[in-house]
Amino acid sequence: MVDHATPNLPARDLDATVEFYSALGFEKVFGDPGWLIMQRGTVMLEFFPDPGMDPASTASSCCLRVDDVDALYAACAATGLAETHLGWPRLHAPRVEDSGMRIGALVDLDGNLLRLVQNPEAG
């Protein structure tokens, strides 16, 4: 197995998190009352319960570096998530940023920011 890291993100309700991420093509690979692991292909996200978190003020975020950012964005958009700059959950379409990288974003139902980053060697 290749070395890797997985983000650990807060979730107000683990069952709601499973439902949200399942709609985006993630599968639950582990879950108990204190921890949840969701996976989509090689992308793995881990969640811990934090029922008192405030989605409006969380600073939790991570980058999902993928070979096809457009496919991941399309899977998110197909669920009906709004592309907007207010509220959560929401989407931001991938675009070339000042860094030269194509980056979009998904803000989940708990306000966690997941940057959707195109792997440069794949794009």
Rank of each mutant, 00 (worst) to 15 (best):
P10I: 05
L91Q: 06
L86R: 15
R102G: 12
F48E: 01
P51N: 03
D98E: 14
I37G: 05
E97G: 08
P7A: 05
A23Y: 07
E19D: 14
D67R: 03
L14M: 09
Q39W: 07
R95C: 07
T84D: 15
L64R: 00
D50W: 02
D98V: 13
D68M: 13
F20M: 11
D54P: 05
S22R: 14
D70M: 09
P55A: 06
G31E: 09
A75L: 08
G41K: 03
A16E: 13
A71C: 10
M38G: 03
C62I: 07
E97F: 08
P89H: 07
S61C: 00
G104N: 01
G31A: 00
M38W: 08
Y21E: 04
M44E: 13
L72P: 03
F20Y: 09
P10F: 09
A56E: 15
W35T: 00
D68Y: 13
T6F: 10
P89N: 07
G100T: 04
Y21R: 00
A105C: 13
Y21Q: 02
F30G: 00
G87Q: 07
A74V: 06
L81Y: 09
T17A: 11
D67C: 08
T42A: 11
A77C: 11
L91R: 01
A93D: 00
M38V: 04
D13T: 02
P33I: 12
D98L: 12
T42I: 06
E97A: 00
P10Y: 02
E97N: 08
A59F: 05
R90C: 08
E27V: 04
S22D: 14
L72N: 02
V69T: 07
V43Y: 10
V18I: 14
T17Y: 04
P89L: 04
L86P: 03
T84M: 12
D70C: 07
S61Q: 04
E46L: 04
D67N: 08
T17S: 09
Y21N: 07
L106P: 06
R65M: 15
L106F: 11
E27M: 07
L36C: 02
P10G: 01
C76E: 08
H92S: 11
A82G: 11
P89C: 05
D98G: 14
P49N: 00
T6H: 13
M44G: 10
T84A: 14
G80W: 10
D50F: 02
E83F: 05
Q39D: 01
L36P: 08
R40M: 11
A77K: 15
G104C: 05
L81F: 10
A71Y: 13
P10A: 08
G41P: 03
I37C: 11
A56N: 15
R102W: 11
V66W: 09
R40P: 01
L91D: 03
H85F: 09
C63K: 15
F26G: 06
F30E: 05
S22G: 12
A74G: 03
I103D: 10
T79A: 08
P33F: 12
M38I: 01
A105L: 13
A59Q: 05
W35V: 07
P10W: 05
L86A: 15
A74T: 04
D98W: 11
G100R: 02
R90K: 10
W88S: 15
T84K: 14
L14C: 04
A11V: 06
S22E: 14
D54Q: 09
I103R: 12
T58G: 03
P33M: 11
S22Y: 08
